[in-house]
Design a protein around this nucleic acid. Sequence first.
RNA 1: GCGGUGGUAGUUCAAUUCGGUUAGAGCACCGGCCUGUCACGCCGGAAGUUGCGGGUUCGAGUCCCGUCCACCGCGCCA
Length: 601
Amino acid sequence: MSDTKTNYSKRSHTCGELTAEALGSRAVLCGWVRHIRDLGGLIFIRLADRYGETQVVCDPDHAPEVAARAAACKLESVIRVAGVVRERPADQMRAEEITGAVELLVDDFEILSRAKPLPFPITEEPGRNEELRLKHRYLDLRRRPMLESIEFRHRFILSMRNYLASEGFLEVETPQLTRSTPEGARDFLVPSRSFPGSFYALPQSPQIYKQLLMVAGLDRYFQIARCFRDEDPRADRQVEFTQLDLEMSFVDGEAVLELSERLFNHLWRELLDVELPASWPRLTYAEALERYGTDKPDTRFGLELVTLDDAFVGSELRFIAQALEEGGAVRGIRVPEGAGASRKQLKEWENEVKSAGLGGMIWIKWTADGLSSSIKKFLDETAETRLRELSGAVEGDLLLACAGPRGRVDTALDRLRRRLGRDLGLIADRWDILWVTEFPLFEEDDEGGLTSSHHPFTAPLSEDSGRIESDPLSVRSASYDIVINGVEVASGSPRIHDADLQRRIFNALGISESDARERFGFFLEGLAYGTPPHAGIAPGLDRIIALMLRRESIREVIAFPKTLRAADPLTGAPSPVDDSQLKELGIILPDDADSSTDETG
RNA sequence: GCGGUGGUAGUUCAAUUCGGUUAGAGCACCGGCCUGUCACGCCGGAAGUUGCGGGUUCGAGUCCCGUCCACCGCGCCA
């Protein structure tokens, strides 16, 4: 009776707590009718709530009225039952369930809310139709695995919040209606009524605000921040997602690395009972790309990439010669003892490469019977020897390779490597957590200009900052990413705290002095009133929680996620609005605007 | 924007290579029976514009074209 869960409520216990200790006592339970087994006389109901399930028995010999009501009760109706806790017959105890030794013999039965027939069963694994789950998310969330992920998420955030508070961090909220800055992802815009023709933007991250909080002297800040980016979603990306945003003053990047390591280690220890290494391995961006073809390598297995250009110098293979001429690369993966791979298997692996945008995949097998290869005609002895040297292949091995522009080859081989890791069962069951550092500060955009590869407030490595004007693409940033089992889960950097350096960066990005004043003037001015050196990081909570729970998609750890087109099947958002609303906002739609969707599909 | 997978009863699935009678089954639902079940059991019933539109054909769930939706990936995601 003293349990906080039952305070203020109609029940004496939850559905997960009655055990043999309660034998003989009266109890009142409320919950959902999860199973009904109507034997014609006796009726067994498995009553469920967030906390568990308890078997309740309605016996017509004991209470005829109760049995009659139970017989009329439908699955997932909400009921309140009162009765006496009694022991189950000895041969019917369920040791694997907490409440498995007891049952409630009901003498009072009240239906609080009847349920219609369900659109899908609560007690079974869902089918392929995820839209149906989202449309009735309130039912999907009744499923035990979903409940577990929501509870886990709560405990994760609680543990994180407590930890950061103990480290002296202040939790501060920043605005959701803010100013659009054309850098980065596409903004979600919100029209202003009082300023017709002007728009707020939803924050892509609280980046500028948190830096201004450092200028304000808050010293250590964090926020569980909702971020919005209007880009196509993926299994690990929603247009609306949650980050732990944090920032520290009077520190360099190293301090943020240390804090992050302690924070993650704390979370893994508290929530998973797993001890991560006290400090994590570090990999530079360049090394990650060279060895794995990606900036977020899964290091739980080998199959590292090798560069094979040298073996193909002067090759008569047109696609290879062309790739090399155009400054591309031939890279591959040696599969130890992979020479036994079937044609069908090779075809599947090739499809993996093709769907990443490459024309095809080369394979070479070294077997006891000699060499066989998709390009055997074009492999002379010199080339073959060179391939073995470069890849380290020995008899019994398989070499898979691709040619093309370096970036696309790396994307394809990263994808192939992950597939190989799965297919060959090479992925170790462990947590591989590491830092990826020294990202390039700039990237070339489509028009040959420069953009920030992280964001424009990222500090360059001090030894590289002299080249911002002369050779910007060679400038490395002081940024750092956290990668766990091949998933990028956090990204951060020391920030620029000097208005002059910030101006040079804007300049390199092609943002003129007047542009910068127009777009970031308030920020530059802030930096000019005494800015402490500061650094921070922003872990993506949805991804981390999904990773910890080994869920395939972050939708499994978000209560009300959106589809891959950023729609919400439950509410029907986004939806058209009344003309009067548009008029008030001064918005005129083109005649062909029609956002309605095919409802028959 | 591009590539791939899928869409059949409320739901999960099936439907003979290459097109062939009235599109089947489990669960749920409705009716009947059943007093120790726990995937309860037994008997019966209702339930379908095969996502949508067009085409080929004597005949289309099946083949072709278009389109919509969901999912996976590429592009995109400072």
